[in-house]
Nucleic acid binder design. Structure first.
Lengths: 136, 136
DNA sequence: TTGCGTGCAAAGGTTTTGCATGGCA
DNA sequence: TGCCATGCAAAACCTTTGCACGCAA
């Protein structure tokens, strides 16, 4: 697939990749990219193209009912490990460890369920946010 | 909070509670309940009321961007175990076993992540659908 | 020059809301 | 009778799409 290098695309990708552990709504991205001068339709088009190529990930924010986008990188093998997303700050952690693999194998062996890790997102609260809440 | 017992509410709740292992979009519920004779605004209003009381659970279908609703019942402990949804047939399995608990504990102990199982849905393919695919 | 990317505006689809009416208690 | 629930339609909202123009390669 051919692809041109345009100012809008560059700025959008740069913005997201500089914030790999944060997620943004389309509106926030519009404002941040190109000083709000990039049309929203172009932003959406770039985002869906990036999502299709697994460079950016799309999430649903339960509370606001808005879609959020987050950079996951080109070389990330996100299909092979779990993802834990913090419901408070939105931070996405890649859980790549033996126990995850074991759990996936257990699901297959005992429950007959062949999991697709790339699509399975574990929601909860990260250590940092939990600490904050305890303090408060 | 006072609450009247109406035909619409009864049918909606009855439909959802008879299908605890499935989730539906608002549209599907509209069609199923009252033979499509219950207005969509009433369906939405009942659903949000049921969600507020934790009788029904709401989550986002990442692919279709639609909200889906599932009965969890008043005394359901869906917050304490994982849910595995089949990407083929849509069936939702409640994974309540020791290994799930262990994995959740591992996430907490090693990754500092306090998981909310009720909101974490594991996507994959169930045994029955996999068997079908192998045959095909 | 080719054809992808863009911006604008309009359309699309889901969910919410306003308001008058209907029905439970 | 008092109030909640309902239905209809319109609004609100986010996202996608059509189309003509601009720009990268």
């Amino acid at each position: 697939m051919k692809q041109y290098k345009t100012a809008g695309r560059e700025k959008l990708l740069s913005f997201l990749s500089r914030n790999p552990d944060r997620h943004f709504t389309a509106e926030e991205i519009c404002l941040a990219v190109h000083g709000g001068e990039m049309g929203q339709s172009s932003v959406y088009r770039q985002l869906s193209e990036l999502c299709a190529n697994d460079i950016v990930r799309k999430f649903r924010d339960e509370e606001t009912a808005k879609t959020r986008y987050q950079y996951v990188g080109e070389n990330c093998d996100c299909r092979s490990h779990f993802h834990a997303k913090c419901l408070r700050c939105g931070k996405l952690e890649h859980i790549a460890c033996g126990d995850s693999v074991e759990f996936a194998e257990h699901l297959f062996a005992e429950h007959g369920f062949s999991i697709d890790c790339g699509q399975s997102i574990l929601y909860g609260v990260c250590a940092r946010c939990r600490a904050k809440e305890v303090r408060a």
